[in-house]
Amino acid sequence: MTTGGADLVRMPGAGRLPADTATVTGRNLRRLVRVPTLIAFATAQPVMFVLLFTYAWGGAIHPPGVTTYIDYALPGIWVLAIAFGASQTGVAIADDLTTGMIDRFRALPMARAAVLAGRVTADAVRNLFVLVLMTGVAYAIGFRFHAGPAAALTAIGLALAVGVAFSWIFALLGLLVRDPESAGIGGLLAVIPLIFTSSTFVPVATFPGWLQAFAKVNPITVTVDALRALCLGGPTSAYVWHALAWIGVLLAVAIPAAVIRYRPAVGRQRPA
């Protein structure tokens, strides 16, 4: 009998988080591949960033210590692309709230953090693709890693870790604003000032003094400096530890806040 359930094999209830996260990750990756505009933007935007910043700004900006601007700029462009991508996570979470998808998940006996963790994991997969794509394009126009393959791989890993922290923050934002359009605008509002007041495109030494003070503690500066050190060579460990500490702090705040918010954000939603 079709509605009977005695023959259905259930998994044990405890320890569901990895399996449920994998299921939700699969859902988000499928969506990414199937929304034609999404995949076009996800591919074209990072490539455009690499080409635009290299050819439009590269002639004007000559940071010390590099011979080509792309060597200086690529680590920053990685972070820019990852931050823009992560802002879409807020949109997606807010969208799931408004369409009732999160209600459906909430009424299932699944691990509570899995909806968010699955989204973040899918973002990390997308980010890996974007990082490799951007680096490939950059290579074609003259970018080179100067500190060897181990440092290069560490750089990619660190960039992915930054992406995870951003995704959790934007997931929290999506849960807080609950409206997809607001989440999109709010996400960019958060990203753009942080990017431009960091070492992403230019050395912070060129900023006025008061802005330098902020720029030096801006987590984007810290992260970009660590990535740059891993790409260009020279002493890296202080930068990397500093970046990891920031990532740790962001995760320690954003993950519990988002997971806690996940429940009441749904609870507060008024019946339609």
């Binding site: 998994m11 299921t23 859902r27 499928r30 969506r31 009732g100 998808m101 998940f105 006996p109």
Partner: peptide, 24 residues
């Protein structure tokens, strides 16, 4: 009240996903 199924998944994928998340 809203048909809360994922428009970008197939019908089958939606049901398998819900089944997996239900613990099957």
């Amino acid at each position: 009240q809203f048909a809360a199924v994922d428009g970008y998944l197939t019908g089958r994928e939606n049901l398998v996903m819900i089944g997996r998340l239900s613990g099957l």
